[in-house]
Amino acid sequence: MRRLRHAVRRLLLAVPVLIGVIILNFGLLHLAPGDAASVMAGEGGAATPEYTDMLRHKFGLDQSLPIQFWHYITTTLQFDLGYSFRNDESVLSLILERLGPTLLLMGTAFLLAAGIGTLLGLLAGARRNSVGDGVISALALLASATPTFWLGLMLIIVFSIHLGWLPTSGYETIGAFNEGAAYVFDVGRHLLLPAVSLACFYVALYVRVMRAAVIEQTRQDYVITARAKGQTERGILFGHVFRNAALPIVTMAGVQAGNLIGGSVIVEAVFGWPGIGTLAFSALQGRDLNLLLGIFLVSAVVVMIVNLLVDLVYSVLDPRIES
């Protein structure tokens, strides 16, 4: 009950935060020079002022900023994210189209990174200064220092061009019209390289955080107590240390929720993955403010939800936190 009340209070607090996000986004984006009409006219190569004015009128850019803002606020509060004139489609449907592939890629990368990273970090921390720790730490350092785009291109060169095992890019084999298990297998083949490239960087982060947390925890009194009770080292590590050391991992996972929706523009670009990151990038380039505001708002909402969940997980892992 108390936990529920806590959650409801957090949800209510989220409303003013969201309104703040909306105002801030709108203000920041209108500071950028250039507008959608001039970019679209520029792409045309040769456009008349009448054409540019026509675009501005159609996009509502010929109205004063306060009126544009009022219009934006009122439609947003009615859960209408608006219309992308550049794409001639509603913002919501553009975002929803990309949400699936984004969540698939980020989810896979996240699970890979968190799983492998936590495990390796736990092993490294438990056997501090051993050869194994050295190897794991060195690999983690290397992985975190490797530029993602470079790793992605190297994976393409090795696995696509030389070995010919996996496709270079894309989400599925277009025109193959796969269905059922064949479709899942096909998407999986396309997913593997981008997920590994993206996970590689995060693995390193999780290893480092987990290792530090484990080392800190093994110095605590409760570990000595457990050892004095005669519990095995393995039992201490997985039964006591792991649960306490997992807290910073959960914190980091919460922080990274923003990436989960924003995606990785670089990995999406290298592998031609149809995610939200590249959508946001092209929207920015085209000054498609309605679409950008929509993406920012959806990202903000997801970050808030994940942070709420993280808070709840905290209180499960460590009941003291609730108060």
């Binding site: 785009f149 291109l153 393409i156 061009i161 010919g164 890019s169 894309g170 999406e268 290298v270 031609g272």
Partner: peptide
């Protein structure tokens, strides 16, 4: 649509 120029080269090389 492949945003990265190097990947576009790779896709031509593999015949995709």
């Amino acid at each position: 649509f492949i945003p990265d120029a190097s990947t576009r080269s790779a896709a031509l090389e593999t015949g995709e």
